[in-house]
């Protein structure tokens, strides 16, 4: 309580650090899911379409193109989640008492809502990837 002058930003429970690490773990989890959807696309690409020059979308069977779209959407959701995480990690590392918005260091609802929406979009991509991979 007495050290409010110098090192007031240091939290003995390392709460901001733990929360930042939690965001990092979440990034790693979404990358795994994202790469699995990409794997499905490349698998379909190499096993069902082995002609040279097959990377042109017009030359691809419809379901392979669909899998490519799923993979693209999955990457997009990954980028969105990483942006949420990077923003959050930055503000967590800024320190406990250097925040002007009304919630203090607490997460803005918009960030968590965006993260949650990104997961739902990834789920939609995963569902289409499962159906198209039949």
């Amino acid at each position: 309580m007495a050290e409010t002058t110098e090192r007031a930003t240091r939290d003995p429970g390392l709460q901001p650090e733990r929360t930042a690490l939690s965001w990092r773990r979440t990034i790693m989890s979404i990358i795994v899911a994202d790469l699995l959807i990409w794997r499905g696309f490349f698998h379909a690409l190499t096993h069902e379409h082995s002609e040279p020059g097959g990377l042109f979308l017009s030359a691809l069977p419809a379901h392979v193109t669909g899998l490519g779209v799923c993979a693209g959407v999955a990457s997009l959701t990954t980028v969105v989640l990483v942006c949420c995480a990077v923003g959050r990690i930055k503000s967590l590392h800024a320190g406990v008492d250097r925040h002007d918005h009304e919630g203090g260091i607490a997460a803005p609802a918009l960030t968590l809502r965006t993260a949650s929406a990104a997961i739902v979009a990834l789920a939609v991509a995963a569902i289409f990837a499962i159906v198209l991979g039949m």
């Binding site: 939290d11 709460q15 733990r18 919630g103 203090g104 260091i105 607490a106 968590l112």
Partner: peptide, 10 residues
């Protein structure tokens, strides 16, 4: 308390 908010976030 910010610690509770951060725990909730985790």
């Amino acid at each position: 308390d910010y610690r509770f908010s951060l725990a909730n976030e985790r």
